[in-house]
Design a protein around this nucleic acid. Structure first.
Lengths: 335, 335
DNA sequence: AGTCTAGATGACAACGGTGTCATTATCATC
DNA sequence: GATGATAATGACACCGTTGTCATCTAGACT
């Protein structure tokens, strides 16, 4: 049927075990042998059979990505980054969106580990920040890499990727302040995301006591932005600038402002967060903070692969990212 | 380590082969035996090891989804539909976005088949409409299901899922005409998608000879919508209504119209296609045709699973979907 | 030259299931 | 009660790798 290492071994005049060694880059294979084998591998277009490797090796060449994020752009960008690093390392990616509770999560992890014997997991918020999830994975000794919101600590955390939302939000705050705004509203997102707290306090850290700030709780959705902006308008609490905790909320705020005839940015400045493609397609285009999701995901994937392969990771740099301010047209000087 | 069918067999007092039979719903197992085994399976929380199943049977429990679509919403919705049907049937989904040429496609398929031994493939446009791709898969005897644009033929095509863009576009055309528009522009998408042709001619079929139509070629992107709308405006060819071949183009057209101070829908009506979440988040909200991507994907997945399992599919209904007109705020009666 | 050590390779079991074929119960029929 | 057909089960090889341990080779040291 298909080509096996035995076929290659026969053609190379070595034992099939030697071929296995070559393919896995094991030590103590003579260079000459290695080259000879590789030549035949190329020639025949051999591809290792993952099922057999998984079974024999007691570990697989696939990793799972478990997420619960309503933001399509984020998920797609993250997937693509992950796929890049996984496929480059010969791993497959098993995606598992989990909409429901943590019970569902445990179940998904269970099946993933038992059925597919995944080698590791990548987690994004909110799972990456859930202590119960982390404990479960730790107890079960499942390698995982988590993307979390915050500044990288000085002591290296080899299985975490940090995204410093605090600093980025502070930058947005500085910018809004520099434009001359003093009356500001923050449209917040789901509280269970750690980044929510980070973004709020980061932004606030740019403000002085004389600034007036109001914070409206909500979630990371367009609808939430509409609803909260509506409240501000109807209750006569419209500020001169709004910091929305992500682009969807910002777009919702924009929508509601429009609904009531507010000119953006003349009468109201709106800033978002994330720089989803989306933020370039609203009118006017959104000022936001660019989150390098693709790179974050790729790094997370690479780190996971290293952890799985037991590569010494102790002196590799801590993975840390910082979103960057992107000035566009939805913010301006106050009237 | 983990629980195997041998453990279950021992506890049930049967041979492990019998357990295998029960788990695969094979015939000729006594009901009593079946129940006894299943009880222990439940009790121990047994999950079959896919790697072993893949290796021993000569087929896997994973299917591939190969796509090349810049539309994040479409991809996410499609993935979710596919995941639903795959996971329900105990299959894993291997996603493989392919950005480049058909050469890359052949390579991806090659690896997917040899390394992961995928059991089948799901294809969406444009791959699903590429004769070379289809021929390759047919020659290699790889089961696949394709989502294609068009009306279902009377003779059943068991491995195709049809989406009737023609009719839906005609509905949009009827609606635009009923509003009283006579001067219309069509902002087209990538020509390699079959749906492009379908949508254009479907829409046109709603028009009479007295209507003035201009068609602008482009691609399925926001930027293309901006560019083409810009051309219409700058060359003084602004119609009273625009039919954009998808929501992104429509959003781009909206953006450009704004840029030049046109009132929507007072001075210009704009209709999109797809009903991505996106179309509800523009201002004003887009009139469009709702594409049930989730259901389409789920059906495609279910059909693929049936094909793989050799279930007789000959008298199951042809899978056919029709997008539905969604009237929103971006269209109105002409000035 | 003899001995030791590390480097290179091979033989073979094992991973956890499925496929094939043989064997044993069960039951209707004569 | 013997016979045959069919249902139910079991024994065992096999899928294509990796892991383990044994063997063989080549050079270094005494």
């Amino acid at each position: 049927m298909s080509i096996t290492i035995r076929d290659i071994a026969a053609k190379a005049g070595v034992s099939f075990k030697t071929v296995s060694r070559v393919l896995n880059n094991e030590t103590s294979v003579k260079d000459a042998t290695k080259e000879k084998v590789m030549a035949i591998v190329e020639e025949l277009g051999y591809q290792p059979n993952n099922a057999a490797r998984n079974l024999a090796g007691n570990h697989t060449y696939s990793v799972g990505y478990i997420y619960n994020n309503p933001n399509a752009y984020y998920v797609i960008e993250f997937q693509e980054g992950l796929l890049k690093s996984c496929h480059d390392a010969g791993f497959e990616l098993l995606i598992h969106p989990v909409k429901e509770t943590n019970e569902a999560l445990a179940d998904v992890v269970d099946k993933l580990v038992k059925r597919s014997r995944i080698a590791g997991l990548v987690l994004t918020p909110p799972f990456s920040e859930d202590p119960a999830t982390i404990e479960m994975l730790t107890t079960r000794k499942i390698p995982f890499v988590r993307v979390i919101s915050g500044q990288a600590p000085s002591t290296d955390e080899p299985n975490s990727v940090y995204v410093d939302d605090f600093e980025a939000a502070k930058e947005i705050g500085d910018y809004i302040v520099s434009l001359g705004h003093t009356d500001i509203a923050i449209l917040s997102g789901d509280e269970e995301h750690a980044s929510t707290q980070q973004r709020v306090s980061g932004f606030k850290s740019a403000l002085d006591p004389q600034h007036h700030v109001q914070v409206l709780n909500g979630e990371y959705s367009f609808e939430s932005g509409v609803a909260n902006m509506r409240i501000l308008i109807e209750e006569g609490r419209v500020p001169s600038a709004v910091f929305a905790l992500n682009d969807e909320i910002a777009a919702g705020a924009l929508f509601a402002a429009r609904l009531y005839g507010l000119q953006i940015p003349e009468q109201l400045s709106i800033a978002g967060f994330e720089d989803s493609p989306f933020s370039r397609q609203t009118w006017p285009r959104l000022t936001t903070a660019h989150q390098p999701n693709h790179d974050i995901a790729r790094s997370a994937g690479e780190r996971l692969v290293k952890l799985i392969c037991n590569t010494d990771v102790s002196n590799t740099p801590t993975l840390s990212f910082q979103p960057e301010l992107v000035k566009r047209d939805s913010t301006g000087i106050p009237a």
